[in-house]
């Protein structure tokens, strides 16, 4: 019986699952989570919009005036936008708790600060 030692070990061990909202997993560095956009750096070239495989990014306005719309519900979190951006204006943060009960809140429009 090869399984017996395993079973005996399991008798004295704790459950491996986490009691989620109370216990939090350790999020690794470099996790691809919520998108952050830096209007100071962005020049509105639109490479991110062109490269997005999920068509989840959209620009409103032209060049330096352009504002980014992120459709989080379409986003596949591949971070190609962050990689393609020549000015490093896009970053995917470690924030992963993005679920919501309101669909409309998933379309996020980032505003440029008024000059």
């Amino acid at each position: 019986m090869a399984l017996e030692p395993e079973l005996l070990k399991s008798l004295s061990s704790k459950p491996v699952t986490l009691v989620y909202p109370f216990e939090r997993p350790e999020v690794p560095k470099g996790l691809r989570g919520e998108l952050k956009w830096d209007p100071e750096r962005c020049v509105g070239c639109g490479i991110c919009v062109r490269d997005c495989p999920a068509f989840a990014l959209e620009f409103v306005g032209e060049k330096e005036e352009a504002e980014l719309i992120w459709h989080a519900e379409r986003c596949i979190f591949c971070a190609q936008c962050a990689e393609s951006c020549p000015r490093d204006a896009i970053e995917l943060t470690q924030e992963f708790e993005l679920s919501t009960t309101n669909y409309s809140t998933l379309t996020i429009r980032f505003a440029r600060p008024k000059k």
Binding site: P28, K29, G30, L31, R32, I76, F77, C78, A79, Q80, E83, L92
Partner: peptide
């Protein structure tokens, strides 16, 4: 799975390969 997440940033769709190398 945790190792894959640490290496690539995602558990399932690693998106590690890119044309001309790897991304991370």
């Amino acid at each position: 799975m945790d190792l894959l997440e640490a290496v690539s940033g995602n558990r399932v769709h690693y998106a590690v390969n890119t044309i001309g190398g790897v991304r991370r």
